[in-house]
Design a protein around this nucleic acid. Structure first.
Lengths: 163, 163
DNA sequence: TTGGATTGCGCAATGA
DNA sequence: ATCATTGCGCAATCCA
């Protein structure tokens, strides 16, 4: 039940609201210079009624008041977070690139392996053929009983050598 | 380069400024209800002097007024963009996952190929050995001139083969 | 000029 | 409490 977020009806939950930062130094170009006399909302320090009563600091839930946007601490936290976010995102992106890189490497490796396989296969087939040939020769020479005294048992010189 | 981002001085370039949306329906909790009478920047409709002259549609700069945050059209554009953004991000994520997936597949493939290579290599080596053995046998049987007329080509097993 | 697609950025909720 | 992740909206660009 998270966020149904129906594409219709601008349903901005929490966000969509922000206040003027504070400074504006050299603005970019066409900033509506109208807004210029507002800021510095009264400190707004809550009296903290809950814990204010007695002293019982029992296992309460401490719901952390939304932190006044002005609070020094707030800005600090925000800034920290922003930093963390940036970092995280950079990592993420880096990781993505690395993964892509990995893919390329693996692809190359694959090609190499396949080439090797092809070569080995060929070599194998050649050797096998040689074998068969030999077998036939032997058969031809031996089968016909002791008639042929072939002194040179097929000196074939099929230099099979690759790599 | 880029952003030294000194942890001090909230240096938000363009961003950091936003006004209350417009509608507020069921707000969250503690919205600074203070700001509530500002907006409606003068329409600021440029007379468009550049193109106003003749018909020359030269490389003018037409800086599109910041679009009033209230404008119906504004919200519309925003919504469209938000949609596009969401879409784009989804795609991006999907792509990342696919890439990761691809890596896994390639890894597997690689293993398979390597296994195959190993097998082929072994087969090859065996065949080669057989060949050598044979050659030796032949040599042994032939070299000693025609001394042995045995029909059986001496199945001797003096094979000092290591591997 | 128009309009979707990308991208950097900040905010807030949530996970660890 | 702190940092890391993640979804989201805004605005500037990019691009077709």
């Amino acid at each position: 039940m998270s966020r149904p977020s129906q594409p219709k009806l601008t349903a901005t939950d929490h966000n969509g609201v922000s206040v003027i930062q504070s400074q504006a130094h050299a603005a970019s170009s066409s900033l509506p210079a109208a807004v210029a006399g507002l800021q510095q909302v009264p400190q707004l320090v809550p009296a903290n009624p809950s814990t204010g009563g007695g002293k019982a600091l029992a296992p309460s839930k401490m719901k952390k008041p939304p932190a006044d946007k002005d609070s020094e601490e707030y800005r600090q936290r925000r800034e920290r977070n922003n930093l963390a976010v940036k970092k995280s995102r950079m990592r993420s992106k880096q990781k993505a690139m690395d993964t892509q890189q990995r893919v390329n490497e693996l692809k190359e490796e694959n090609e190499r392996l396949e080439a090797k396989i092809k070569l080995l296969s060929k070599e194998l087939s050649v050797l096998k053929d040689l074998f068969l040939e030999h077998a036939h020769n032997l058969a031809d020479n031996v089968q016909p009983s002791a008639g042929a005294e072939g002194s040179s048992p097929a000196p074939n010189s099929t230099s099979t050598n690759g790599q």
